[in-house]
Simulated assay, not measured.
Amino acid sequence: MLDIEGTTSATRHVTDVLYPYARRRLARLLTERQDEPEVRAAVGQVRELLGEPEADTRRVARALGAWADEDRKVTPLKSLQGIIWAEGFARGDLTAHFYPDVVPALRRWHERGARLYVYSSGSVSAQRSWYRHAPEGDLRPLVSGFFDTRTAGPKTASASYRVISAATGLPPATTLFLSDRVSELDAAREAGWLTGALIRPEEPHSTSGRSAHPAARSFTDIGLDLPEGTV
């Protein structure tokens, strides 16, 4: 089970490229496509989070902008960003980023029979676009499934990992979660998963304490024993 930011991919690519791209287009999306079901549902979620059922489009846009600036992992923001990013990838405005050690490892693990999944705070739509538009080509065939905070729940809640285990049908004790964030790894371990911390020096969470979790500086350092049924 793979995290994205700080694990397979550079956080700065997301914060410096994708976030500003979506930020510039949020207000227009809300005004021009407010009748689309996914946009309408996201707006309703924003109003619920604000406790303002009558909030107009301008108020919703301000809230989303503030959450984007704070890098809040709220589902409606991620859903709308996902719509914008998917279209940006399709137009060729955006390209995904993967650390050089990642794609060879994913291909090697896939060839050896590992079932690979992605669990990120970004929407499933955004995850699929990310993996489809990698510089190395379309990586989606390597991935058995994608999960986000809407389909599984918050990444810092152990219940979310139990939801994923139920969805995949795989035993928690044979599922390895790779992430750069201790709070996520703690939650996964509480749910009975194996955990691995990525410590990349250029990443913002690389100096956090990780004594409870085996650590690696790159995917090259990760050796997987792959008995039948292991992710």
Results as ranks from 00 to 15, higher is better:
residue 1 M to P: 09
residue 3 D to L: 03
residue 5 E to S: 04
residue 7 T to S: 12
residue 8 T to A: 15
residue 14 V to E: 11
residue 24 R to S: 11
residue 28 R to V: 03
residue 32 E to I: 04
residue 38 E to Q: 14
residue 40 R to D: 12
residue 41 A to Q: 12
residue 44 G to K: 08
residue 51 G to W: 14
residue 51 G to K: 13
residue 54 E to S: 11
residue 55 A to W: 09
residue 56 D to N: 14
residue 64 L to M: 05
residue 65 G to W: 01
residue 65 G to L: 00
residue 77 L to Y: 06
residue 80 L to H: 05
residue 80 L to D: 06
residue 82 G to L: 07
residue 86 A to S: 14
residue 95 T to E: 15
residue 105 A to Y: 04
residue 106 L to T: 00
residue 107 R to S: 07
residue 113 G to V: 09
residue 114 A to E: 15
residue 114 A to M: 14
residue 115 R to I: 05
residue 115 R to D: 13
residue 122 G to F: 05
residue 127 Q to G: 02
residue 142 L to R: 01
residue 143 V to P: 08
residue 145 G to C: 03
residue 146 F to A: 01
residue 148 D to V: 00
residue 151 T to L: 03
residue 151 T to F: 05
residue 153 G to H: 01
residue 160 S to T: 05
residue 162 R to I: 03
residue 165 S to N: 12
residue 167 A to P: 07
residue 173 A to N: 11
residue 180 D to Q: 00
residue 182 V to M: 08
residue 185 L to F: 00
residue 185 L to K: 04
residue 186 D to I: 00
residue 188 A to Q: 03
residue 190 E to P: 05
residue 191 A to T: 06
residue 192 G to L: 05
residue 196 G to C: 15
residue 197 A to R: 15
residue 198 L to A: 10
residue 198 L to C: 06
residue 199 I to D: 11
residue 202 E to A: 12
residue 203 E to K: 10
residue 206 S to C: 09
residue 208 S to R: 15
residue 211 S to F: 11
residue 213 H to D: 08
residue 214 P to R: 10
residue 215 A to Y: 09
residue 216 A to Y: 14
residue 218 S to F: 08
residue 229 G to E: 15
residue 231 V to G: 10
